[in-house]
């Protein structure tokens, strides 16, 4: 099972890389097409921005397919490892990194279906690839669980909700980044800014309840394992920082009407905070200090 998990893991790295290359090629074709339009003159009714739609080119179609394939391989990676270890594959940085990449691809796939904006993947896929490559640098051996982690249900749901939340923040970040690239006006045939602003907001609406659930489940687990639902452990505090920034974004947008650039900057802060939470245990130790 572990071997199968490893094969699927490497297959997912290849699939993510192929998807990324396809998207980059599609982008290049969009830019070439735009240059061509500028050179020969824009025909009546032509809208180069539509080239970023799902139906634009074979490269995009291949990119979308390989994105789904990567998600499938990562799902299989986690399931095989789960079967092999007997617990949710979320117990060390190797497993957590793969799970984080899986969360990013899962939420990306959801929004790809709903919004049909593959261009968001141009930012999400490098994030997923970086996480997968990082996973290749940390020990992948199955270590036995220390007694504090021997809570299969809470280990699984606490971390599963976390990776969905982080995945949603990665997608929100991706949309915000594409927005920021176009903050002074449409560029490179990227998706419409209003659409990106909406997509990033919807991704936050997915992520914020899951982050809240992660923190609550963590508190429940801390209460039974450590005898206290909140200890101001660095990872707990870092997750609270992320939660507060999310809350600030939602209130700024909902009640103060923050849209566009200011909202995008806050979303980038949310993703930075979630990365800080994710890697925090490596730097700050505390009760979450497992490798």
């Amino acid at each position: 099972m572990l071997s199968l998990s490893q094969y699927c893991f490497f297959a997912s790295i290849i699939a993510v890389s192929l998807a990324l290359v396809s998207y980059v090629l599609a982008f290049a074709s969009v830019r070439i097409a735009r240059a061509h339009v500028v050179l020969v003159g824009e025909p009546a009714g032509a809208d180069v921005s539509t080239l970023t739609g799902a139906e634009s080119s074979n490269a995009v179609t291949f990119g979308i397919l390989t994105t789904w394939l990567a998600l499938g391989f990562l799902t299989a990676t986690l399931l095989f490892r789960w079967r092999a270890t007997g617990h949710g594959p979320f117990a060390n940085m190797y497993e957590f990194s793969i799970a984080f990449a899986w969360g990013a691809l899962l939420v990306n796939a959801y929004f790809l279906r709903r919004y049909r904006q593959w261009a968001v993947g141009v930012v999400v896929l490098p994030i997923a690839l970086a996480l997968l490559l990082y996973a290749t640098t940390v020990p992948s051996e199955v270590e036995p669980l220390v007694p504090a982690l021997q809570n299969n249900l809470l280990l699984t749901v606490h971390v599963a909700t976390a990776v969905i939340a982080y995945g949603a923040f990665a997608v929100a970040f991706a949309a915000a980044a594409l927005y920021m690239i176009q903050s002074n006006g449409p560029k490179w045939g990227l998706p419409d800014r209003t659409l990106l602003d909406d997509l990033s907001y919807r991704a936050m609406l997915v992520g914020f309840p899951f982050l809240t659930l992660t923190i609550v489940l963590g508190a429940i687990w801390a209460d039974v394992a450590w005898g206290r639902y909140w200890s101001w452990d660095p990872k707990e505090s870092a997750s609270l920082v992320t939660w507060i920034v999310c809350a600030a974004y939602l209130h700024a947008r909902g009640a103060r009407g923050w849209r566009g650039k200011r909202a995008a900057m806050l979303l980038m802060l949310v993703f930075a905070a979630s990365l800080f939470t994710y890697f925090g245990n490596l730097f700050f130790g505390g009760l979450h200090s497992y490798g």
Partner: peptide, 24 residues
């Protein structure tokens, strides 16, 4: 005031960040 509440949220976030980065 949402403006004041947002400022307070930012202050809370910064204080929590300080508490995370520094030994307590």
């Amino acid at each position: 005031s949402m403006r004041v509440a947002l400022i307070m949220l930012c202050v809370l976030g910064l204080m929590t960040l300080a508490g995370t980065l520094l030994s307590q």
